[in-house]
Design a protein around this nucleic acid. Sequence first.
DNA 1: TATATTGTTACACC
DNA 2: TGGTGTAACAATAT
Length: 285
Amino acid sequence: MPELPEVETIKRELKEKIKGLRIEEIEVRKKKMFIGDKKEVIGREILKVKRRAKILVFVLSGNYFLIIHLKMSGQLIYGDKNGGKIMMGQRIPFAGRELPGRTTRIIFYFSNGGRLFFNDLRQFGWVKVRKTKERDLSRVIGKKLGKEPMGSEFKVSYLKKVFGKTRRAVKVVLMDQEKIAGIGNIYANEALFVAGVRPDRKANSLSEEEIKRVHKGVIKVLKKGIKAKGASGGDEAYINTKGEKGNYDFLVYQREGEKCVRCKEKIERMKIGGRGTFFCPGCQS
DNA sequence: TATATTGTTACACC
DNA sequence: TGGTGTAACAATAT
């Protein structure tokens, strides 16, 4: 549920806290969530904190990397030496309670006495150790990842090529990480609403004009999400270092039955690719 | 109590 | 083969 804007916000704020610190110890409480040998990264310095798609990457000394995926319910909480807590990730569940808590799966201990808690209710998230001289983050992550939708390579021509190849629903394609990396259920719904395109349209049925609108819509909602420091509602709510909530209010997501902000029709809900999908039948076609 | 939910992946199918 | 659809994962809310 943290999608590109939420992970980007986490990256920006976490960076300020842990860049330059040395990892002194890693406490793995849930074995399946830590892939690799922790001994290989203990003692290393965190040189950089980056993001690719919805994945966080800690660049460590000695060509080592820590790759972190929060999946649906992961949250990162930085606590300083004095016990000050800084939330990064989702509000729910159990944020703000004592740490470590029931959902704390992994704890990083740093050279300055600070700690980073990786909480994850559902245990789908993970941390991976990787060693490589590769510089490209996709290669570091070792997975096929599509274009960054906020990057310069994400062009209308690229979308046109991707959409033209498939008859899958356009929303499913937007969420396909191998095509476009970082968009999840929330921002896919939001982008298609902004574009005025029904989420169940077959990707290869879109006109050039519609593809342009989708392209614009994707960039617009992601930018807005980052500017707002993440989503404001539901499980997705993000809380930053100062305890402030994300500000991005959903246009259609989770607004079934409510009036469309654009044309006053009732927002409908359907299922696409097994996922909850929200759209306005009045102004999306 | 059964079902929906969520991102990603493994796997079955044609 | 590849493009596609779906079950599985975990835990909670409804």
